[in-house]
Design a protein around this nucleic acid. Structure first.
Lengths: 339, 339
DNA sequence: CCTTAGTGCGCAAACGTGTGCGCAATATCG
DNA sequence: CGATATTGCGCACACGTTTGCGCACTAAGG
């Protein structure tokens, strides 16, 4: 209950307020504001002017209660150690702002989405939720499913079911492999991740396939833990190898690992790309810094999110649309680290 | 309106549903769930069990409509080019999760908060809003004020009025200055920002004061634009100077600029700290990377946000609490770049 | 037995918005 | 001119939750 200060009950202007001033029914005000054609132009103009004058702003929460629609979209983010997620959040926010939506942060960090988190989605009656990293517990998935909350995975494909928008990770891996082969590299290593996400697996498989097609093989695999520090540690392992055992090219499954890797190599006096070529994946802005100048495969992040929003919107209108997976092709950015 | 699929109207369980099953009034269910003492233990236990069994989750939106309280906190973030804001978002989310709140991203990026953004706060009836960077247009401030939306600036102090939680930027600048002087540096430069935030100004003033106290002066000032790229460009300007005109120590007003600065210097063959010492401000995690190993002044971010939440909560309960500014002391982290 | 105090709960309204239905007035047509 | 279609709007209820008020019942005290 809003307490008035100083005795004047400065209640906020609502549709009812406006209707009283205009001398019409609240329903008329609603329809006028929402542009219902059945309201005469004269009445509508009058009400719009009144709304403007009294600084009316709709109470979205009340609207939700009545019509089920609010512009609220949940967002689940991966850990802060990968700037990719921060970028995703910024992109999603910008896109939402443009489309008139709002982003509700549901969870940010590692760990899977448990029942408690899924309930938050219901508590706030979000129209849908974009999940960028974490996996869902089956219990949580069931909750969302049975309550008709459309879920879309971005940058990840669920194992059993669910909507998803993802980059062509396999194709990207292949493209990077071909690029390195064209550059004349003949032995290869992969800085991979310990988690079993579809994303990481597809990238690695694509890479491996094309390397083998070219008649070579991946001879070194190190877990880079999807972090800068993991990539850095991998560099130390590589530096510890006798130089002739070191691969001529390394594929870090994500840019952030590639950055750690390069810094690690640099500190050990190993030159990129003269001694070892490095390529990454994601296309985060930091990879373009002169100090890295990383060859990478850029994900079409803005477009991916746009598709994700579209998917949710479509399913809000029609719950019966079947599950859908969209794969978008990434773009190879050739920079200095691939030789 | 939730459309049922397959003929079975799988409506969500609400307080009314529960009340019907239990054979009591909805008001009794509410009070039982909220732990009102006037409900007998027997009834309460029965209802709690029922709620558990039927997977009841409260509809916060409806609660808001009726009681004005939801756990929604707006968050306004600065540009993505400074990872400090991403970290702030992650911290705020973690803290909110702990306290049972939710974060609604209101705006992320550059630019001031205009009327339209302020209205979003009203649309969703947020309990309050944390503003981490942008300045508010006076119109937007008025809207929030007249609608009793508590605002707290974090990492910034408003010029005229408003609540704020901030690090002791002036004191931090002084501490960094003393540290560099102790290390024997005798000439100084500052990589500053073009915007006129209180934060940047205080840091620079504190630094300047102590440098002068020690009998030296700041002889070089470059605009680093609060970005990595700005810091990098500053390095190129400095490298273009004849070596004896270069300051012996540089203070970048934020870590992200310090990082760009160091990379720029490195690429020009200038050694840190042998040729030039560098210190930053903020204490973002990236500054601790081996490749930077930056001496900096860490902001107590978690605590700052905790205080911000507390401030808002207090003002939700009691609108008459006057405006308040809290300043928290930061922590000097001495690493390798200060010599 | 009567009064008083306290306990446990229900009634009904309120929060702000959306919508199906229907009524009245006007326009259109035969 | 009368019948029908169209336009413009109001009524009433719904969404899920909270809360002031008050009623009924029990326990305690005189």
């Amino acid at each position: 209950m809003v307490k008035a200060q100083g005795g004047i009950p400065a209640r906020r202007t609502t549709i009812v307020t406006l209707s009283q001033i205009a001398g019409v029914a609240p329903s008329t005000v609603t329809r006028a504001l929402r542009g219902d054609t059945r309201i005469s132009k004269k009445t509508r103009d009058k009400i719009l002017a009144l709304a403007q004058k009294h600084g009316y702003t709709p109470n979205i929460l009340a609207r939700t209660l009545s019509s089920g629609r609010n512009g609220l979209y949940g967002l689940v983010l991966g850990p802060s150690t990968n700037p990719f997620y921060a970028e995703l959040m910024y992109e999603a926010t910008a896109l939402a702002e443009q489309l008139g939506f709002r982003i509700l942060i549901i969870h940010a960090g590692t760990g899977s989405i448990e029942e408690r988190t899924a309930q938050a989605l219901l508590n706030y009656q979000v129209n849908g939720c974009i999940i960028s990293s974490a996996t869902m517990s089956s219990q949580a998935g069931k909750i969302c499913d049975s309550n008709n909350v459309p879920l879309v995975m971005v940058n990840r494909v669920a194992y059993q079911s669910g909507c998803a928008v993802t980059c062509d990770n396999r194709g990207g891996g292949e493209e990077l492999a071909r690029h390195l082969v064209e550059k004349g590299r003949q032995s290869f290593g992969v800085i991979r991740t310990s988690n079993f996400s579809s994303t990481a697996r597809d990238r690695e498989e694509g890479f491996l396939t094309e390397i083998r097609n070219a008649g070579y093989d991946v001879t070194l695999r190190i877990d880079g833990k999807s972090t800068y520090e993991g990539g850095f540690a991998a560099a130390e392992q590589i530096a510890a190898l006798p130089p002739r055992d070191r691969p001529e090219a390394l594929f870090a499954l994500s840019d952030i690992m590639a950055m750690g890797l390069m810094d690690g190599l640099r500190l050990k006096g190993i030159n990129v790309p003269d001694d070892i070529a490095v390529v990454g994946f994601d296309g985060i802005p930091q990879s373009g810094r002169a100090i890295y100048d990383l060859t990478t495969l850029e994900q079409p992040l803005t477009l991916m999110l746009k598709r994700a929003f579209d998917m949710i919107e479509a399913r809000v209108d029609d719950r019966t649309i079947p599950e859908e997976v969209i794969t978008l092709r990434g773009r190879l950015i050739v920079r200095g680290t691939s030789g």
